[in-house]
Amino acid sequence: MTRWLFLLIIVFTVGAAILYAYVGGFKSPVITITTTKAPIFLAGQAFYGSANDEKFGPLFRGVKDAKDQGKLRGELANIYYNDPEKARDTVRAFVGMVVADTVSQQLPAGYRYRVFAAGQRVVQARSTASYLVAPGKLYPAIADAAKQQKLKLRHVYLERFPEQGESEVLAVVE
């Protein structure tokens, strides 16, 4: 019986490793330090509260639904205005989509625009990993790059998760 249990554990572990590799979990992100050249416009909704708040998750689903129903055109994105790990699970965020401009489409009810300004110095982390594992790869890479370059993170992050292409996080630095 012990042999079968051991064999089952090995099969499960190999299967999990294959799945993790398939979604890009073993890919290292590409890090660059750059300055944003143009403003990035987002359409969405602001949130302030606990990451465990029952209202936080539906914001993401609402944005995806607005995109799927054709109410908004763009790619899924968020701006975080703090580091939730250091703020004891309190999140200050703007959940939405990157849009081309602020005039070409009408916003759904309750949605607003936000701008991630041009001219900001940022650490940019990019990866082809799935959005399911990308944040867990991109944020530590940003922290390591900032530490190595002796840059101070301002804890303003823009996350972009396009359906095709690379996931990206821009972290504003001083």
Rank of each mutant, 00 (worst) to 15 (best):
R114K: 10
R3M: 10
E174K: 14
K37G: 11
V63I: 12
L153V: 00
Y157C: 07
R160V: 13
T90K: 14
N82H: 00
R160M: 14
A46P: 06
V99W: 06
S130E: 06
A77Y: 05
A46G: 09
R92W: 08
A143R: 15
Y157W: 10
A109V: 13
P39G: 02
A145M: 09
G25Y: 07
K147C: 01
Y113C: 03
R88D: 14
F12G: 14
L170A: 07
G119N: 06
E166G: 05
M1K: 11
E54I: 07
E168L: 08
P162T: 04
K64V: 14
R126H: 02
L151T: 12
E159R: 01
K152A: 15
F116V: 07
R88P: 01
T35V: 13
V115P: 06
A125G: 12
R154H: 07
S167T: 10
K55V: 04
Y80G: 03
R112D: 04
A46K: 08
P29R: 03
D83Y: 04
L151N: 02
R121P: 11
D53I: 06
Q105W: 10
Y80K: 02
L5V: 00
E159G: 04
R61S: 14
G96P: 08
A146W: 08
V98G: 09
P162R: 01
K147Q: 12
Y131R: 15
A51G: 15
Q149S: 14
E85M: 13
Y22M: 15
E166V: 09
G136D: 09
L153A: 01
T128M: 11
Q106A: 14
Y80D: 05
A145P: 08
D68W: 04
Q149W: 05
E75Q: 15
F116Y: 13
L153C: 02
A143E: 14
P84H: 02
D83M: 00
M1R: 10
V156N: 09
A109Y: 00
L5R: 05
A129Y: 02
L132I: 08
T32E: 13
T35S: 11
M1Y: 09
V91E: 05
P140V: 03
P39W: 02
R121F: 06
Q164Y: 05
A87V: 03
D53L: 05
K152Y: 00
V11R: 01
G24E: 13
V98P: 09
R88N: 15
V123D: 03
K37N: 08
R61C: 00
I40N: 00
Y111H: 15
G15W: 05
F47N: 08
V122C: 12
T128P: 05
L138M: 08
K27E: 15
K67R: 15
A38N: 13
A77M: 05
Y111V: 10
P58V: 00
L8H: 00
G119H: 03
Y48P: 00
L59C: 06
V23N: 09
K67H: 07
V95G: 09
Q45D: 07
